[in-house]
């Protein structure tokens, strides 16, 4: 039986949105940790490791997230792990985010002037000390605007979870559409909910960038 699109459906969509937020947080946290390793390995690792990481970044940036998602979704079961859509999309999103964040953070680390390293050397710091106390804090300052901007990308990309059946915001939208048969209303509401999540992040990133540029222009 069809029903009118009403407040109950909005609440249903919000429960879907909760999973979108959770998935985004997992992707960002996991992708950030792995991304940091990717960035550090890419800048400081031995030659072969640098090459491998470069291939990893190129492969992930050069293929659709959808392909990666399907490879994890179907690949896990081939190797004998019976995983849910939830695990597949989380793993795919973590690898996807790590490649993009790692690549962008690599640039930030390389942007730190050599003299900073030399100054830290002169103070007799170890490599880890130089990295943690001198280089990474400064690189983080440069990295923050683009990283916040990428968080909006992550939120948008989690919508792919819907295609493997994970009930996120978009999938909930499909279910509500099936019950109410008002696709235009439902998908526009879904779009506005994504907008409500992504727009603040994009604007925040823009403000951070302006502030950073303001302090660095003479």
């Amino acid at each position: 039986m069809l029903r009118e699109f009403g407040i109950d459906d909005i609440l249903l969509l919000l429960t879907g949105a909760k999973w979108t937020v959770l998935l985004s947080l997992i992707a960002f946290t996991g992708g950030g940790l792995l991304g940091l390793m990717v960035a550090i390995g890419r800048v400081f690792g031995p030659g072969p490791l640098k090459f491998l990481i470069e291939c990893y970044i190129r492969a992930i940036q050069g293929t659709p997230l959808l392909g990666q998602l399907f490879l994890f979704y179907f690949g896990f079961s081939i190797f004998g792990f019976d995983v849910s859509a939830w695990v597949a999309i989380s793993v795919a999103m973590v690898f996807f985010s790590s490649a993009f964040l790692g690549d962008s953070w690599r640039g930030c680390i390389e942007a730190i002037p050599k003299t900073q390293w030399e100054a830290a050397d002169a103070l007799g710091m170890s490599f880890v000390q130089k990295l943690c106390y001198v280089v990474l804090p400064q690189a983080a300052r440069i990295a923050i605007p683009s990283t916040v901007g990428f968080m909006a990308q992550i939120v948008k990309n989690t919508s792919l979870a819907a295609v493997v059946g994970f009930v996120d915001l978009l999938r909930m939208g499909q279910l509500v559409t099936a019950a109410t048969f008002q696709p235009l209303t439902v998908y526009l509401v879904v779009a506005f909910m994504y907008f409500a999540m992504c727009y603040p992040l994009s604007q925040w990133s823009r403000i951070l960038e302006r502030r950073y540029n303001a302090t660095h222009q003479h």
Binding site: K156, S159, T177, Y187, V190, C198, S202
Partner: peptide, 19 residues
């Protein structure tokens, strides 16, 4: 820029016929 492409495609393909 702040909504997923997949949702935009759904609006165009599934949504627009109702208007």
């Amino acid at each position: 820029r702040n909504t997923p492409l997949l949702v935009q495609l759904f609006v165009v393909f599934f949504g627009l016929p109702s208007v």
